[in-house]
Deep mutational scan, measured.
Amino acid sequence: MSGIALSRLAQERKAWRKDHPFGFVAVPTKNPDGTMNLMNWECAIPGKKGTPWEGGLFKLRMLFKDDYPSSPPKCKFEPPLFHPNVYPSGTVCLSILEEDKDWRPAITIKQILLGIQELLNEPNIQDPAQAEAYTIYCQNRVEYEKRVRAQAKKFAPS
């Protein structure tokens, strides 16, 4: 494992614990031996107030490669969400998460999670990743928002 990646992720964890947006979660997972795995984080993004996503808490896994922060983490909703920019596998399609697009090593975990929260309610229809959600979003916004509200209710924190 890269010392650069681990040191950056340790800084990220410290900064997150000191200050993070209300309702968001970002925690490194534990290895079988109980030690912390900084390369694999369990996160959760709350649906934004005043949107059909409100009330939901959407679980996301963030996986970092050894060359982080040169390369972005892979962000994957578990379980996958109904959304035009979420692949059926759950992987998020967002330009700041793509090395050859808008990724920059200075982007923080907090910025990534806030960017994904923004994307939930403002899909990028130029870059669809899920045919069904994309089609319904474009053709029947009322039905799309109904499905999103049902999903938010399903993923409401207990």
Rank of each mutant, 00 (worst) to 15 (best):
L57A: 05
I96W: 03
F77E: 03
L97K: 01
Q139L: 11
S7A: 01
P73Y: 03
T29R: 14
K110N: 08
A10G: 09
P79I: 15
L9D: 15
Q151H: 05
V142I: 13
I136G: 02
T91M: 10
G55E: 09
K14D: 03
N121P: 13
M39L: 10
P157W: 13
G47W: 08
W41I: 04
C75W: 10
P21L: 05
L9Y: 13
D33Q: 03
L6Y: 15
H20R: 07
N37F: 13
K154G: 02
V27W: 06
G47H: 07
S89M: 15
F22K: 01
L114N: 12
V25H: 09
D33W: 07
A156W: 09
Q151G: 06
G56I: 02
R149Q: 11
P157H: 13
R61A: 10
L113S: 11
N40L: 14
R147L: 14
L57K: 09
T35A: 09
S71F: 06
E78L: 10
K30C: 04
P28I: 01
Y68W: 07
G3M: 15
K74D: 15
R149I: 13
P84H: 00
I125V: 11
N124D: 05
I109L: 11
T35Y: 05
W16P: 01
L60C: 14
A133P: 11
S158R: 11
E99H: 07
C75I: 15
A5R: 04
C138L: 07
F77M: 04
G55R: 08
Q130A: 12
A150G: 12
F24N: 05
K65L: 14
Q126R: 14
L6D: 07
P32Q: 14
Q130V: 04
P46H: 07
R8M: 11
K76V: 13
E99S: 11
L113K: 03
K49F: 13
N121M: 12
P52E: 14
G56E: 01
L63V: 14
R141V: 10
E118G: 09
D100L: 12
T135A: 13
Y134I: 07
Y137D: 02
G56Q: 04
L57G: 06
Y68S: 04
K101Y: 15
K30Q: 07
E118W: 08
V92A: 10
P84C: 09
P73F: 03
L63M: 14
C93F: 00
E99R: 10
A26Y: 01
Y137N: 02
